[in-house]
Amino acid sequence: MTSTLDPSHGELLLTTGVTGPASAVGHRLTIAMTDWQATVTWSGDQPSAVELTVEVDSLQVVRGDGGVKDLSGVEKSLARSNALKTLDAKRFPQIRFSADQIVTAIDGGYQLNGTLDIHGTSRPRSVDLRVKDLGSAWRMTCDASVSHAEFGVKPYSLMMGAVKVADEVVVSFRAEHPKG
């Protein structure tokens, strides 16, 4: 049996940091990935595999925190364009996480062990997924850090490197799925 989650069930957000000598003028971005699908394969009442596929072009800049002034609509569009170039979205249109081993030994959820594919590079990855029984539905949450450098992605910078996106990006997943 399989079940599927998509943006109608929750959200997949990225949060960037900012670094460099002039980092005070930069914004920490919150980015929504608006086109994704997670498929869970079940063995009885336990998940046995998870596949998450994210369409890179669905990246939308939601807000920018910090900086000298608020992030304008034009700046959000420019940040989106720069992120798509950085990720080479035309050449690598999807990000994938495939968990082929699920360990149930963690408190409050599952450890998903598998492979993360970004920008044409695959790396082993373990992710802790917290699961809460809401009665009629399951709530799933996960926060994980991903390094640009680990996947051969050069973070965007400006002002000759005086302001640049930090190497670590925090990925946050929140979803609810009805039981049955």
Rank of each mutant, 00 (worst) to 15 (best):
M1Y: 09
T4L: 11
T4N: 09
L5K: 00
D6P: 06
D6V: 06
P7Y: 02
S8Q: 15
S8I: 12
S8K: 15
H9N: 15
E11Q: 13
L14I: 08
G17A: 05
L29A: 06
L29H: 07
L29I: 02
I31Y: 00
W36S: 03
W36G: 05
W36C: 02
Q37D: 08
T39N: 13
S43I: 10
P47Y: 03
A49E: 10
L52C: 02
S58G: 09
Q60R: 15
V62R: 09
R63A: 14
D65T: 12
G66N: 06
D70S: 14
V74W: 13
L78I: 15
T86Y: 05
A89Y: 03
R91P: 07
P93H: 10
R96D: 08
S98F: 09
S98Y: 10
A99N: 06
G109V: 00
Y110K: 01
N113Q: 13
L116N: 07
D117W: 00
D117A: 10
I118K: 05
H119F: 08
R123V: 05
V127T: 09
D133P: 04
S136Q: 13
R139D: 09
T141F: 07
T141R: 12
C142I: 04
V146G: 04
S147V: 06
S147P: 04
V153F: 03
Y156W: 13
Y156Q: 11
M160S: 12
A166S: 14
D167Y: 07
F173P: 06
H177W: 15
P178V: 12
G180A: 12
